[in-house]
């Protein structure tokens, strides 16, 4: 993932805070925020993840002119067509559940907190990858990525470490 321009905006912070059920006025009320030690509206701690909105290639967002793998007239727009039952296809290609895999870990280091007016860029680099055997989901393939978020002056503001997992089979409940 590379995000060239992620403008941090007050309305986006408000919507994000609402979606996590957080009505703390530090995320929406300028006059309240101005009276606190923080001094301005800031973004909730996990907001950097919303940079996905500004990643032109983010694959978990439907895009103009491209087939989407969620349901339309049929259960899946793109995946698991008849030819995909072919055993030569990898599990990734066949299984909708592994479209992007599942999120296993997420870590944020805050050099400072994000605020409206910041214009961030983000660069993601692959980290380590490893495998683990699980009773509930078969072989688990983990892969790590590190994303550095910088502001308009080039200052590093948030470092994110994400671990994704692709499971061999759907996790038993």
């Amino acid at each position: 993932m590379a995000v060239e321009r992620f403008p941090v905006e007050a309305s986006h912070i408000l919507m994000f805070a609402r979606s996590i059920g957080d009505s703390n006025p530090i995320y929406s009320d300028e006059s309240h925020a101005g009276s606190t030690e923080v001094g301005s509206i800031i973004a909730p701690p996990t907001f950097a993840q919303a940079s996905a909105q500004f990643d032109p290639d983010y694959f978990l967002r439907p895009k103009d002119g491209q087939k989407w793998f969620g349901s339309g007239g049929t259960a899946s727009g793109t995946l698991v067509k008849d030819e995909d039952k072919d055993d030569s296809k990898s599990d990734d290609e066949k299984s909708g559940s592994s479209a992007g895999g599942l999120h296993a870990e997420q870590h944020f280091t805050y050099h400072r907190h994000l605020k409206p007016g910041d214009v961030l860029s983000a660069e993601t680099k692959p980290g380590e990858s490893w495998e683990k055997e699980s009773k509930r989901a078969g072989v688990l393939k983990f892969s790590e990525s590190i994303t550095e978020y910088r502001d308009q002056t080039g200052e590093l503001v948030v470092t994110a470490r994400s671990v994704g997992v692709v499971t061999e089979k759907v996790i038993e409940q």
Binding site: A50, L60, G70, S71, A75, S76, S95, S97, V170
Partner: peptide, 26 residues
């Protein structure tokens, strides 16, 4: 609501038809 704010529209989080019939979750 979270999908819309975060930008993660993976259908496993919102698409009942996809998640039950294709992905195999309840």
């Amino acid at each position: 609501q979270y999908a819309g704010a975060s930008g993660d529209y993976n259908p496993v989080h919102s698409d009942e038809k996809f998640v039950t019939e294709v992905a195999g979750y309840p």
